[in-house]
Design a protein around this nucleic acid. Sequence first.
RNA 1: CCGGGGAUGGCAGAUCGGCUAUGCAGCGGACUGUAAAUCCGCGUAGGUAGGUUCGACUCCUACUCUCCGGA
Length: 310
Amino acid sequence: MYAIVGPTGSGKTEAAIKLAHNLGRAALLSADSRQVYRGMDIGTAKQKDTGSTPQYLVDIREPDEPLTLAEWQQAAFAIIDRLIADGTTPPPERRACLLVGGTMLYIDSVVYNYAIPQVEPDEAMRAELEVQPVDKLYAELLKKDPAAKAFIQPQNKRRIIRALEVIAKTGRPFSESRRKREPKYDVQMLGLMPSWEELEKRLRTRAETMLTAGLVEETQRLINRFGSDLPLLQTLNYKQALEFMAGRKNKQETIEEMTRVNLRYARRQMSWWRGRKEITWSSSVQMLLEQLEDDGWVSRAAGLSHDLAD
RNA sequence: CCGGGGAUGGCAGAUCGGCUAUGCAGCGGACUGUAAAUCCGCGUAGGUAGGUUCGACUCCUACUCUCCGGA
């Protein structure tokens, strides 16, 4: 199993499709918190055509029923188990699994087998806590779970509330849930990151393409169906499309703005992965594939999937 | 040409005779059920030349530029 990570617009999906082709029998597992929603295609740069390679966890929800991390993780585990792990799948359906996407937390939840607290969001409780001052909430959190100080910042109300929610429902400190478990799968992590100049160029071109391809119309369709206060409309690219539609920005300004916010997001993604020893980085799709050949990973995996197919 | 207002970091925009404005952008970071979310840390200033003062971005003078009104 491979995980292909990299910032938005780096060409991860393209790399994954080529790699899947080289491997022979493989499937794509999308780790993307926005591509899971139907009708959000252009703005999320969804790749519908993956050739003969199946793609999972795309278009699995309507935009008005949000998917949570825990649900996504369970769905991912179920698919991976079916494809490669538990041996109950008849050989013809078995495939090497390529986990590909930019949602860092989603990737990690599978690769490191996060034990996500089985506590569903409690809207009533959240609303109640929301109106209280942060410092009070933070003090309460530290009293109940002193170790939380190491990873929750004093002003981060949303995460403080989540931590309090978990403590209230489980009676255990939130910090306990961060323990690492044994990984379920043997995952090879590959990173794809072109130069920043190259990435900026790609993102600008992609922004232009999105507008030409009908990003505005797609946004309008979402508004028509779900109303203009749909939270998902605050997503990258859709938010900028809304500004354009409201006449606050012209087309050129919108393209620049889209490029800028995508670059900012890419920076945050890179800051998540920077310094991870287990990721092998490449600066182009070509390099990534060559590196795999050189290290014998492809042939090994190809042999494996060949065995599986027998 | 006359009168009046302004000149502050990449941009916007406050305050103050000695003590971090702030926001956006930029750079770095955190992250276990909203994660394309949320949050934290860090640069870069005071048009030019003089003067007053222990000390000037802050007060005074001149100059330059600019905006508004009037010729």
